[in-house]
């Protein structure tokens, strides 16, 4: 069942069956992961251009909302995709969709540029890093299914919960800023975020319980 480069480390719990083969046409999510792997494996420039044409406009919109002026944003957009090219070898399709992985790179660039702060990150190569336990052979979700289920799970949240996630992830606003914008106590913002996350975890069936 496991096609290399097309699995994600989430157990299948509440979902239907994953497609065993690749006979049906792949949607954009699948295709983008494959393009990213092609960049990693053989420096495929055509695949890189496809990634840029698909994600470039979305990354640019994200950077603009995160607080950049247009001139600055174009530099950052270029830096983000230069990092996509350089770091493609680190992309692990079992852990992330191409969208999630590119989002994380753009987020780190924007913290660096707009807030003038460093982004502390763990390092999987560090000798002090605690590795994941060996997978127990449980079937895993295909990247495409994972992306679809994240979209479905987001759609199933209450409007209030989705709004906090959107302001937080997409507009890069802190809980304190969201509280001011919505005119509610910061404790309420945090509890909406907590509830939303708990629901997503329940629906998406993360590996938390098996890993702790």
């Amino acid at each position: 069942m496991k096609a290399p480069g097309n699995v994600i480390g989430f157990p299948r719990r509440s979902f239907g069956r994953a497609s065993a083969g690749r006979s049906e046409p792949a949607d954009a999510t699948d295709e983008m992961s494959d393009r990213l792997l092609a960049v990693a494996e053989h420096g495929d420039r055509a695949a890189f251009a496809v990634l840029f044409r698909h994600f470039g406009p979305r990354v640019r919109a994200y950077l603009l909302r995160a607080g950049g002026d247009a001139g600055r944003v174009d530099d950052l957009l270029q830096e983000t995709f230069a990092a996509v090219w350089r770091k493609a070898g680190q992309y692990d399709s079992r852990r992330a969709t191409a969208a999630a992985w590119i989002f994380a790179i753009a987020r780190n660039r924007s913290i660096d540029a707009f807030r003038r702060e460093r982004r502390p990150e763990f390092d999987r190569q560090d000798p002090a890093f605690q590795p994941d336990p060996q997978p127990d052979g449980e079937e895993t979700l295909a990247t495409r299914e994972r992306a679809e289920s994240v979209r479905a799970a987001l759609a199933a949240l209450s409007e209030e919960q989705r709004e906090v996630l959107r302001l937080s992830f997409y507009d890069g606003e802190s809980y304190a800023a969201i509280a001011i914008r919505l005119g509610i106590p910061v404790g309420t913002v945090k509890s909406r975020a907590r509830l939303a996350f708990r629901r997503l975890r329940a629906v998406l069936g993360g590996r938390r319980e098996e890993l702790r």
Binding site: F55, R58, V59, Y62, A96, T97, A98, A99, A100, W101, I102, F103, A104, A106, R107, R146, A147, V150, R151, L154, L165, R166, F169, Y170, L200, L204
Partner: peptide, 8 residues
Amino acid sequence: EAVGGALM
């Protein structure tokens, strides 16, 4: 991060 990716 999957949420961030999906929103983007």
